[in-house]
Design a binder for these strands. Structure first.
Lengths: 145, 145
DNA sequence: CTGTATCCTCTGAGATACTG
DNA sequence: CAGTATCTCAGAGGATACAG
């Protein structure tokens, strides 16, 4: 099925509603995906290690996301028949190729948080605006969600 | 320059549950954010243009995401007092700095969709697995809505 | 044309409890 | 330890109608 086409990168277009890469983008452009893939960059990790490293993630969410990453071919899941059963997760080649963009997004967040918070303060202080701003995933801290 | 041993880019850490950049990551690691910011890379666009370019986005979702982007300082919103009122959205400097990582993620998706679909087929065909795989945002197409 | 306001549905995600 | 199974809730997101 492989077409030896040089223009391979433009066979799909995420701006088209019916393009299957639209749903894939939804999987990848995800907070947990970015954190998990970034964590696995240092090598294979066990479930508990990931759970501890990615603070605040519930085991259910971590399991579900790891399963999805496994299904999409980003991570491998190895079960070791040790006395207390242990499971190791590691990036595949595909997952490793996905990591740099995701890490870049995460690092951008860490680096520009101050700028964003300043912008938010400016926006929220502006008297011409009153009501909340629609999709405000981070409007008010209001405790850890 | 800085004599502090703290590296500025590591003042925040998305792996800490209470770090405010965690919620910011949730805003940025988002399908619509990636598409909108990517679309605005070519310059200022009107609301309708974005709505048309980003196929399948409802006006409510587009409005909400643009508002959030505006609040976080990524885009500007200019209202032109034309006969039929028109509004132009454009990236700020901050938004422009965010664009490359997001575009990289989107392009990765378009480029590696074949690999991912092959992995999914492999996973779903594997007889040792039966049930669905947790967070399967793209398990079955089930018709494009 | 560019929104705003409802209604409604779906699901991501937390909390908790239980199993191999 | 590494899950799976429920229950529950908040919020993203679609459809529709209406307004400046």
């Amino acid at each position: 099925m492989e077409t030896t086409n040089d223009q391979q990168e433009h066979r799909y277009d995420a701006y088209l509603a019916q393009c299957p890469c639209r749903s894939l983008l939804d999987v990848i452009a995800n907070k947990w995906t970015a954190l998990i893939v970034g964590a696995l960059l240092t090598g294979e990790h066990r479930f508990g290690e990931l759970r501890r490293q990615i603070e605040g993630v519930s085991q259910k969410v971590l399991t579900a996301n790891l399963r999805a990453l496994e299904r999409n071919g980003f991570v491998t899941r190895r079960v070791y028949p040790t006395s207390p059963p242990s499971v190791g997760y590691a990036l595949t080649d595909l997952g490793r190729s996905l990591a740099p963009p995701l890490v870049a997004v995460r690092e951008w967040t860490e680096r520009h948080l101050d700028d964003v918070e300043a912008a938010r303060a400016r926006y929220d202080t502006d008297p011409t605006r009153s009501g909340p701003a629609g999709v405000d995933r981070a409007a008010e801290p209001a405790a850890a969600r």
